[in-house]
Simulated assay, not measured.
Amino acid sequence: MAFTFIREQLSQQQQQARYRQRVCTTSSSENENLITIEDKTYVNFSSNDYLGLNNHSSINAAMQEGVERFGLCASASSLVTGHQYAHQSLEETICQWLNKPSCLLFSSGFSANLALFHALGSTQKKSSNNVSFFLDKLSHASMIDGAYQSQARIKRFAHNNTEQLTQFLQQEPSDSNKLIASEGIFSMDGDIAEINKLKELTEKYKAWLYLDDAHSIGVIGEQGQGSNAHARIDITMATFGKALASSGAFLACEEQLKEYLTNFSRHYIYSTAMSPAIAWATQTSIKLVQDEQWRRDKIVELSELFLSLLDDNINVLPSNSSIHAVIIGDEQKALNISKILKEHGLWVTAIRPPTVAKGSSRLRVTICANHSVNNINSLARILNKALT
Rank of each mutant, 00 (worst) to 15 (best):
I220K: 05
M188Q: 15
A115P: 12
R364C: 07
Q13A: 10
F5Q: 11
L317H: 03
S142A: 13
E32M: 00
G82D: 08
Q223F: 12
G82H: 13
F5R: 07
T166N: 05
H83I: 06
L211F: 07
T388R: 14
A357D: 14
Q151P: 14
S29T: 11
W97V: 01
I185S: 06
W294T: 04
N31F: 15
V326G: 01
I185Y: 08
G190H: 05
T202V: 09
V219C: 03
G345Q: 00
I185V: 13
K197F: 13
I192W: 15
C253Q: 10
K178D: 13
N375P: 05
Q149N: 13
V131P: 14
S132C: 12
S150E: 02
D297V: 04
Q167R: 01
A76P: 12
A334C: 02
S89I: 01
R232K: 13
H118Q: 11
D145Q: 15
D191Y: 13
G221P: 14
D189V: 12
A273L: 07
Q14N: 12
K206D: 14
V348K: 04
S108K: 03
N55D: 08
S150N: 07
F306H: 02
I376Y: 04
A229Q: 12
L302T: 07
A181S: 14
S247R: 13
T26H: 12
Q15V: 06
Y210G: 00
V131E: 11
N130V: 03
A243Q: 13
N161E: 07
W280T: 05
L79V: 15
K197T: 13
I327S: 00
S89E: 14
I144N: 07
A181T: 10
C95Q: 12
I154A: 00
E91Y: 10
E163K: 09
L201K: 03
L257T: 06
L261G: 09
M143F: 06
Y148W: 10
L98T: 10
N313S: 11
S132K: 14
N228F: 00
A76M: 11
C368M: 00
Y148I: 05
L179Y: 15
G121V: 05
S372D: 02
S321D: 01
G66I: 02
Q9D: 14
